[in-house]
Nucleic acid binder design. Structure first.
Lengths: 145, 145
DNA sequence: TATTGTTATACTCTATAACTATA
DNA sequence: TATAGTTATAGAGTATAACAATA
């Protein structure tokens, strides 16, 4: 077998660095998609998360941020006519977020951008893609109780 | 619940999602290290980047941020007695950043935290670590002209 | 003229706390 | 009492533009 050149640095740290470089590439592609669509990153991320009608609170959970942020983000999306706040008849405290037609179109465009970025960055033969998926899956799996 | 049935989604998008989840785990570990050391993230990242004496400008390049940010970051590190600004005798415009003894100690502690996080997150048999490194390397490699 | 580091300024993202209206 | 959403506010991170000292 071959001798590794200079294993003075643990491989896990190499993996850390590679992961952050990969993330930087992905982030760059997504940011380009956002500016392309004329949306600030936070609004774009929210838009990408909106499928079925969802209460504000749940969107906050999906975005992993405080509920107070969601107000401003949804304000922006509403100002652009991409989303509506609908009262929930079953609980008058909650507002269901629903995409408008234009919102649906914009989200579809965003999805296409994201898919394009992912396709360009993860440009590997399918077998390697699958190997990578299996490895990454094992890293992010939640440890069961 | 390891394999959600989603055959209609391209694998590259799955990889995108897994990568971001992995990054979130890493980020969490690093943030914990930063608060553990009593340093704001930006200062911690700068500290981790400081080895040999380095001009402010170069630190900005390493951190991939504008030079105007570095002033404040280094102010913070200097206030904590971790770094010194030394005039460069060969070019009196530049200031060389040099870690103090305490700065060196703190950086070593930070390195240990980072290594610990990396070790915990990338907790795989060595063969799988190497496979992952090879795959990631191919993804971040710069395309040659 | 160009460059290093600084300052002033502004914009975004994020969090906390207090408020309202409902439950 | 507790919860959904809002508001006010503050902090951190980042960017641009203008400036002084130096090259």
């Amino acid at each position: 077998m071959s001798t590794p050149p200079a294993p003075d640095r643990p491989i896990s740290q190499e993996l850390l660095e590679l992961t952050f470089r990969l993330t930087a590439r992905l982030r760059g592609g997504l940011d380009a998609a956002h500016t392309d669509l004329g949306l600030p990153p936070a609004q774009a991320q929210a838009l990408a998360s909106l499928r079925a009608p969802v209460p504000m609170r749940e969107l906050a959970t999906m975005l992993a941020c405080d509920a107070s942020n969601v107000t401003g983000i949804v304000d922006g999306l509403e100002r652009r006519g991409l989303v509506e706040r609908r009262p929930d008849p079953r609980d008058r405290r909650v507002k269901q977020l629903v995409l408008t037609e234009e919102g649906e179109r914009r989200r579809a465009a965003l999805d296409a951008h994201i898919a394009k970025t992912a396709g360009e960055v993860f440009d590997l033969p399918e077998r390697d893609q699958e190997a990578l998926r299996d490895l990454l899956s094992r890293l992010v799996e939640e440890p069961d109780a």
